[in-house]
Design a protein around this nucleic acid. Structure first.
Lengths: 134, 134
DNA sequence: GTAATATTTCAATAATATTTGAAATGTTTT
DNA sequence: AAAACATTTCAAATATTATTGAAATATTAC
């Protein structure tokens, strides 16, 4: 059986190469075929950053923290009083949001006041808008 | 030591109630205090939907699938050829995106052609715009 | 109907993420 | 410097999610 995809542009190793039917190959011709699609993928570091960002949003506790910080900057003790959870648990989630670049904490006397980063605020405002228009 | 938060508005059970310092209580007075913040939280079902949505985005394989479908609708076999992975793995991830409401599949002859939902397309276009302006 | 193709489902395993409670850190007050 | 308070870190236990390969389903071609 003949290979279905054109090998014209550059040599690729055949091992692990997954063949696709001719009619399907034709249909994706205008976007550069499989090769073109591969090239259109975001770079790995970009994918990683997106993954960390969305992962940070993918938890009820963290969504609630973000929602609270949309109202105003808050110290850990208030977030804890609102969400009613153990210190260490809250701290764990704050740290994930911090690592994702969504929040920053500033020590003020006894307390650490957390606030959204500019990036996160933009994102959350856009999302609020988008979700309200569904 | 006296309780720090006003109990004026409604009776709440004291058990599990986390006290906050007076100065902090004062500082969040303008947003309704702890009670006000609790009321400002999104409803549970809303939180759940958001969680499922962002969770769907929080994986490299799925981000790549979404990126590919931004180019054009594609059948499973092309996605497989681009991402070079086992059928069952790909199917697993497609299913998660489908459950989150981000993609839909339509059987066409042999193939199932997957496409982004309108919601997902709006989201991804906005995100692309936002991320490019960083 | 049988064979061929495309995709999904299933069950077991592996990998990650979350929760928990105790101990540690860092700040302020005395 | 000791006590009090706010928050974080750590290690163990639990829960969730992802991967794998085999078997099942569904569609089309013969």
């Amino acid at each position: 059986m003949a290979r279905q995809r054109a090998d014209s542009r550059k040599a690729r190793k055949e091992v692990g190469d997954i063949p696709i039917p001719q009619d399907i190959a034709d249909s994706i011709c205008s976007c550069g075929g499989v090769e073109g699609l591969i090239e259109s993928l975001p770079a790995d570091d970009s994918i990683e950053r997106m993954q960390r960002w969305y992962q940070a949003c993918a938890d009820p506790v963290r969504l609630k923290i973000l929602s609270l910080l949309m109202v105003r900057p808050l110290c850990v003790c208030v977030i804890k009083a609102v969400l009613q959870m153990a210190d260490s648990k809250l701290s764990y989630h704050l740290n994930i949001l911090k690592k994702a670049g969504m929040i920053e904490g500033e020590q003020q006397g006894y307390y650490i006041i957390y606030n959204l980063t500019d990036q996160a605020r933009v994102f959350l405002e856009r999302e609020r808008e988008r979700l309200s228009s569904l």
